[in-house]
Design a protein around this nucleic acid. Structure first.
Lengths: 211, 211
DNA sequence: GTCTATAGGCAGATAGAC
DNA sequence: GTCTATCTGCCTATAGAC
């Protein structure tokens, strides 16, 4: 954002984050090493330590950037899409795009490894989920007021279920390598919210363009 | 099963599996070492290699035993509970019990680490999910025939959604250390299937004894 | 900022005595 | 079956030159 072209200044740090993010999302935080990152960008591990003193700091930076990007994407959704159901669809599509690259949600992966994470990373993971829940809750409440969503319980409860469902769908679908598996589960999960639908089962068997 | 009392024969292997299972469910397959297991049962790592030649073999054995126990529990549910909704509740309760010990589903954890697993373990993880799906699908179909479940799509699709939802609920709830979080998400997830319920949102805000 | 060199520790694994 | 001893390799991390 500061210097889009310079190759020497803050660019290396960003390339490190790019590579490390990919590694965490595919192999987990305990499944990659500084050597893996260093090798992929033709640098030594010593140089890596210049940019990020330890793995904990690198991990914290990864979550910070991931969260920033994610919530920018959510803000963008709100700008582009006016109605609640479209926003919810777009939200699920964010997850779908990650899975299509054979990745898990960064914080979903870190949630699995939670017990082994440094404290600073733990807090950041929790915050990510909290903020997701808050955003979804707002969308759901707006939808209910507009009359486009039909539910009676707490919006926050539905929001949590959606987050759990989408994170779980990524987790389980990835080993199969079928993105359909995620699409279908996501569609099934969200289908019950639509106004006038009587059961959560009338999911439109994952139409390609949807979700 | 063979010798319930003997302390020297096959007992060590079982204690190794007990400790290793706990470690994988809490820290992940890449988050523990032979030394961790050895220390906890007062044995050397060399002895560990006698029982399980390598970590891959240990991992394979872990999944095999976990799956056996899990499907025995499912068979037990079918024996004890005659109607489909009760069976589904009991199914969710199995997950809940695991989470209460701060553990993830073994195969849920391994799904996160899937890309780093030896091939033999990968297959076993997939099979576990497939078998779960098959069991749930049967329960759902029976429920629909009995008239206790109300859904229109494919039972297999619902089954997949339930598995994803429960695995995701464990994943996300554990960092919070609140078992309520899982209970609520699970209740929300299953609420839409009940006959005569109009939306998936009328979840009975996680009554303690339920699920 | 990046390098070479290196430390110190832990990983999974093996040989061979008992 | 379990031990001691040991190997090789990789891990995170640091010192110091350029």
């Amino acid at each position: 954002m500061a210097r889009p072209d310079k190759d020497s200044a803050g660019d290396t740090a960003m390339r490190i984050l790019d590579v490390a993010e990919h590694l965490v999302q595919t192999r987990g935080f305990n499944g990659f090493s500084y050597a893996d990152v260093a090798a992929e960008i033709n640098i030594t591990t010593a140089s890596l330590h210049y940019h990020f003193p330890g793995k904990a700091e690198l991990g914290r930076a990864l979550i910070a950037r991931y969260a920033t990007n994610f919530f920018e994407a959510l803000a963008d959704i709100e700008r582009r899409l006016p109605d609640a159901p479209a926003r919810l669809q777009a939200y699920a599509e964010l997850y779908s795009r990650v899975l299509r690259e054979q990745r898990l949600c960064l914080c979903g992966m870190l949630a699995a490894e939670y017990q082994t994470l440094p404290a600073q990373m733990r807090e950041a993971v929790i915050t990510f989920f909290d903020d997701n829940e808050a955003w979804l809750t707002r969308v759901l409440e707006v939808g209910r007021q507009e009359g486009t969503f039909d539910f009676t319980g707490s919006a926050a409860g539905i929001a949590r279920m959606i987050i759990c469902g989408l994170e779980g769908a990524m987790l389980v679908a990835r080993p199969y390598g079928e993105s359909d598996r995620f699409q279908a589960a996501a569609a099934q999960l969200l289908s019950g919210l639509k106004k006038g639908v009587s059961s959560p089962t009338e999911a439109p068997a994952a139409s390609p363009a949807t979700v």
